[in-house]
Protein backbone atom coordinates (compact mmCIF):
# COMPACT_ATOMS: atom_id res chain seq x y z
CA UNK A 1 0.00 0.00 0.00
CA UNK A 2 2.07 2.96 1.15
CA UNK A 3 5.25 0.87 0.90
CA UNK A 4 5.82 2.27 -2.62
CA UNK A 5 5.96 5.82 -1.24
CA UNK A 6 8.26 4.72 1.57
CA UNK A 7 10.58 2.96 -0.91
CA UNK A 8 10.66 6.14 -2.97
CA UNK A 9 11.48 8.19 0.11
CA UNK A 10 14.36 5.82 0.96
CA UNK A 11 15.74 6.24 -2.57
CA UNK A 12 15.49 10.03 -2.30
CA UNK A 13 17.46 9.87 0.95
CA UNK A 14 20.11 7.72 -0.70
CA UNK A 15 20.26 10.08 -3.70
CA UNK A 16 20.78 13.10 -1.44
CA UNK A 17 23.61 11.39 0.45
CA UNK A 18 25.31 10.25 -2.76
CA UNK A 19 25.21 13.79 -4.14
CA UNK A 20 27.08 14.90 -1.03
CA UNK A 21 29.80 12.33 -1.88
CA UNK A 22 30.86 12.81 -5.50
CA UNK A 23 32.47 9.73 -6.99
CA UNK A 24 30.64 7.32 -4.68
CA UNK A 25 28.24 4.58 -5.66
CA UNK A 26 25.59 3.33 -3.19
CA UNK A 27 25.72 -0.42 -2.53
CA UNK A 28 23.50 -0.99 0.44
CA UNK A 29 21.08 1.10 2.49
CA UNK A 30 19.97 0.18 5.99
CA UNK A 31 16.65 1.24 7.55
CA UNK A 32 15.06 0.56 10.92
CA UNK A 33 11.34 -0.20 11.00
CA UNK A 34 9.33 -0.78 14.14
CA UNK A 35 6.77 -3.57 14.10
CA UNK A 36 4.10 -1.01 15.05
CA UNK A 37 4.86 1.27 12.10
CA UNK A 38 2.41 -0.69 9.97
CA UNK A 39 4.93 -1.37 7.22
CA UNK A 40 5.16 -4.79 5.61
CA UNK A 41 8.88 -5.54 5.00
CA UNK A 42 8.18 -7.89 2.06
CA UNK A 43 5.96 -5.33 0.35
CA UNK A 44 8.65 -2.71 0.95
CA UNK A 45 11.37 -4.93 -0.58
CA UNK A 46 9.13 -5.57 -3.58
CA UNK A 47 8.42 -1.87 -4.05
CA UNK A 48 12.11 -1.02 -3.65
CA UNK A 49 13.12 -3.53 -6.30
CA UNK A 50 10.43 -2.35 -8.69
CA UNK A 51 11.49 1.29 -8.29
CA UNK A 52 15.22 0.64 -8.82
CA UNK A 53 14.82 -1.63 -11.83
CA UNK A 54 16.59 -0.18 -14.89
CA UNK A 55 17.74 2.90 -12.98
CA UNK A 56 21.22 3.92 -11.79
CA UNK A 57 20.17 2.55 -8.37
CA UNK A 58 19.62 -0.93 -9.79
CA UNK A 59 21.24 -3.55 -7.59
CA UNK A 60 21.20 -1.34 -4.50
CA UNK A 61 20.61 -3.62 -1.55
CA UNK A 62 17.96 -2.83 1.08
CA UNK A 63 18.72 -3.98 4.61
CA UNK A 64 15.66 -3.81 6.85
CA UNK A 65 16.09 -4.08 10.59
CA UNK A 66 12.55 -4.99 11.69
CA UNK A 67 12.49 -4.08 15.35
CA UNK A 68 10.29 -5.37 18.10
CA UNK A 69 8.71 -2.67 20.25
CA UNK A 70 10.89 -1.64 23.18
CA UNK A 71 9.69 -1.84 26.74
CA UNK A 72 10.94 -0.13 29.87
CA UNK A 73 10.62 -1.58 33.34
CA UNK A 74 9.06 0.86 35.79
CA UNK A 75 10.80 -0.89 38.69
CA UNK A 76 14.41 -1.12 37.53
CA UNK A 77 14.40 1.09 34.35
CA UNK A 78 15.79 -1.78 32.29
CA UNK A 79 14.92 -1.50 28.56
CA UNK A 80 14.12 -4.60 26.56
CA UNK A 81 12.51 -5.90 23.34
CA UNK A 82 8.83 -6.83 23.72
CA UNK A 83 7.62 -10.07 22.14
CA UNK A 84 3.88 -10.74 21.86
CA UNK A 85 3.23 -7.93 24.34
CA UNK A 86 4.47 -9.97 27.24
CA UNK A 87 5.54 -7.02 29.33
CA UNK A 88 7.81 -8.84 31.72
CA UNK A 89 11.16 -7.30 32.54
CA UNK A 90 13.96 -9.77 31.77
CA UNK A 91 16.10 -7.91 34.30
CA UNK A 92 14.06 -8.11 37.51
CA UNK A 93 11.02 -10.14 36.44
CA UNK A 94 8.54 -7.35 37.21
CA UNK A 95 5.46 -7.03 35.02
CA UNK A 96 5.20 -3.32 35.80
CA UNK A 97 6.58 -2.20 32.44
CA UNK A 98 5.53 0.04 29.58
CA UNK A 99 5.93 0.10 25.83
CA UNK A 100 8.14 3.06 24.85
CA UNK A 101 8.75 2.66 21.12
CA UNK A 102 7.81 0.57 18.12
CA UNK A 103 6.59 2.79 15.28
CA UNK A 104 9.94 4.13 14.10
CA UNK A 105 10.67 4.39 10.39
CA UNK A 106 14.16 5.76 9.96
CA UNK A 107 17.45 5.57 8.11
CA UNK A 108 20.29 3.63 9.69
CA UNK A 109 23.28 3.63 7.33
CA UNK A 110 24.47 3.71 3.74
CA UNK A 111 27.28 1.64 2.29
CA UNK A 112 29.06 3.28 -0.63
CA UNK A 113 31.89 2.30 -2.92
CA UNK A 114 34.20 5.21 -3.52
CA UNK A 115 36.32 5.60 -6.62
CA UNK A 116 40.05 5.36 -5.85
CA UNK A 117 41.78 8.55 -7.03
CA UNK A 118 44.21 6.48 -9.17
CA UNK A 119 41.39 4.41 -10.66
CA UNK A 120 39.64 7.60 -11.63
CA UNK A 121 42.88 8.83 -13.19
CA UNK A 122 43.32 5.60 -15.15
CA UNK A 123 39.80 5.83 -16.50
CA UNK A 124 40.43 9.30 -17.86
CA UNK A 125 43.48 8.12 -19.82
CA UNK A 126 41.75 5.11 -21.35
Amino acid sequence: MHEMGIANSILEGVGAEVRRRPGSRPVKVGVRIGELAGVDPDALRFAFEALTLDTPMHGLELDIEFRAPQGRCRECSHEFAIRDFELKCPGCGSTNAECISGDELEFAYLEVEEDEPCAAGRKSTE
Binding site: H2, I6, G13, E104, Y109, E111
Partner: peptide
Protein backbone atom coordinates in the same frame (compact mmCIF):
# COMPACT_ATOMS: atom_id res chain seq x y z
CA UNK B 1 33.50 -0.18 0.92
CA UNK B 2 32.60 2.62 3.25
CA UNK B 3 29.66 2.56 5.66
CA UNK B 4 28.30 5.95 6.66
CA UNK B 5 25.59 6.59 9.22
CA UNK B 6 22.38 8.01 7.77
CA UNK B 7 20.05 9.97 9.98
CA UNK B 8 16.49 11.12 9.78
CA UNK B 9 13.05 9.68 9.31
CA UNK B 10 11.89 7.97 6.17
CA UNK B 11 8.88 10.02 5.14
CA UNK B 12 6.30 8.71 2.77
CA UNK B 13 4.29 10.94 0.46
CA UNK B 14 1.39 10.56 2.89
CA UNK B 15 3.54 11.75 5.80
Amino acid sequence: MNRVPLEGKVLSENA
